[in-house]
Amino acid sequence: MTVKELIEKLSLKIVAGEEGINKEVKGGFTGDLLSVVMGNAKEGQVWVTIQSHINIVAVAVLTNIACIIVTEGFEIDQDAIIKANEEDISILVSNKSSYDMIKELIEIGIG
């Protein structure tokens, strides 16, 4: 599945990184502590978090994840949007809780 297909299936809003929507999604990871994400996220995973600042883009680049889903309706910092566009990191947003988003990811086969 691609990030684009994920957006369509889960009705997510893309706020940055439209150039990265053709990346392949290979699994999922959730976490809000950046050091944990850096140490444990795998290439191609979807990262579910409530973090919305510029450092999420640096972590995404470092771990080579497929995209970031920011939950709970948190607004993305403008600096993060600019950097995500530069790095082709798709940032998607949802008003759903992280728990509900993870359930939906599992339901569509992302585990």
Rank of each mutant, 00 (worst) to 15 (best):
residue 45 Q to E: 13
residue 52 S to V: 00
residue 32 D to V: 05
residue 103 K to C: 14
residue 86 E to S: 12
residue 5 E to H: 10
residue 60 A to F: 01
residue 102 I to C: 15
residue 103 K to S: 13
residue 38 M to A: 15
residue 54 I to M: 06
residue 14 I to E: 10
residue 90 S to W: 00
residue 6 L to V: 02
residue 95 N to K: 15
residue 38 M to Y: 15
residue 59 V to G: 06
residue 13 K to Y: 06
residue 63 T to V: 10
residue 64 N to I: 09
residue 77 D to A: 13
residue 19 E to G: 10
residue 89 I to G: 03
residue 62 L to V: 10
residue 44 G to P: 03
residue 37 V to E: 05
residue 32 D to H: 05
residue 33 L to N: 08
residue 55 N to H: 09
residue 43 E to Q: 14
residue 104 E to P: 03
residue 60 A to N: 05
residue 28 G to R: 10
residue 106 I to T: 13
residue 50 I to K: 14
residue 4 K to F: 05
residue 53 H to R: 07
residue 55 N to Q: 10
residue 95 N to T: 14
residue 28 G to W: 07
residue 13 K to F: 00
residue 15 V to I: 12
residue 13 K to R: 13
residue 52 S to G: 15
residue 82 I to V: 08
residue 78 Q to R: 12
residue 107 E to V: 06
residue 70 V to Q: 08
residue 38 M to Q: 15
residue 9 K to Y: 03
residue 106 I to H: 11
residue 32 D to F: 02
residue 58 A to I: 08
residue 38 M to W: 14
residue 3 V to T: 06
residue 59 V to D: 03
residue 88 D to E: 12
residue 6 L to Q: 00
residue 16 A to M: 00
residue 99 Y to Q: 10
residue 46 V to N: 11
residue 76 I to G: 04
residue 96 K to D: 15
residue 6 L to P: 01
residue 74 F to T: 09
residue 109 G to R: 09
residue 49 T to G: 08
residue 44 G to C: 04
residue 68 I to A: 08
residue 71 T to N: 11
residue 16 A to W: 02
residue 88 D to Q: 01
residue 35 S to I: 07
residue 10 L to D: 00
residue 3 V to M: 11
residue 46 V to W: 04
residue 78 Q to K: 13
residue 96 K to C: 12
residue 37 V to Y: 04
residue 36 V to W: 14
residue 40 N to H: 15
residue 5 E to K: 14
residue 63 T to S: 13
residue 5 E to L: 00
residue 87 E to T: 03
residue 72 E to S: 14
residue 97 S to D: 08
residue 104 E to A: 08
residue 85 N to I: 05
residue 45 Q to F: 09
residue 38 M to S: 15
residue 91 I to R: 10
residue 84 A to Y: 02
residue 18 E to V: 03
residue 83 K to D: 01
residue 44 G to A: 01
residue 45 Q to N: 14
residue 25 V to W: 02
residue 104 E to F: 02
residue 26 K to H: 09
residue 89 I to W: 01
residue 97 S to V: 06
residue 60 A to I: 04
residue 56 I to M: 08
residue 14 I to S: 06
residue 54 I to K: 08
residue 41 A to V: 05
residue 102 I to P: 08
residue 94 S to T: 13
residue 12 L to N: 04
residue 91 I to F: 04
residue 78 Q to S: 13
residue 27 G to L: 06
residue 99 Y to P: 02
residue 111 G to C: 11
residue 81 I to R: 00
residue 51 Q to I: 10
residue 86 E to I: 11
residue 29 F to S: 11
residue 17 G to C: 07
residue 53 H to Y: 08
residue 31 G to E: 07
residue 32 D to N: 09
residue 69 I to K: 01
residue 67 C to R: 00
residue 49 T to N: 10
residue 108 I to P: 12
residue 26 K to L: 13
residue 75 E to C: 12
residue 98 S to N: 13
residue 1 M to V: 00
residue 70 V to Y: 02
residue 2 T to C: 07
residue 40 N to V: 04
residue 102 I to A: 12
residue 19 E to L: 00
residue 34 L to P: 04
residue 24 E to P: 01
residue 7 I to Q: 07
residue 69 I to M: 01
residue 67 C to E: 03
residue 80 A to D: 06
residue 17 G to I: 10
residue 65 I to Q: 07
residue 76 I to R: 04
residue 104 E to Q: 15
residue 25 V to S: 03
residue 105 L to H: 04
residue 66 A to L: 06
residue 71 T to G: 09
residue 109 G to C: 11
residue 34 L to E: 10
residue 15 V to M: 00
residue 20 G to E: 05
residue 36 V to N: 13
residue 54 I to N: 03
residue 70 V to S: 07
residue 105 L to N: 01
residue 37 V to F: 01
residue 78 Q to L: 12
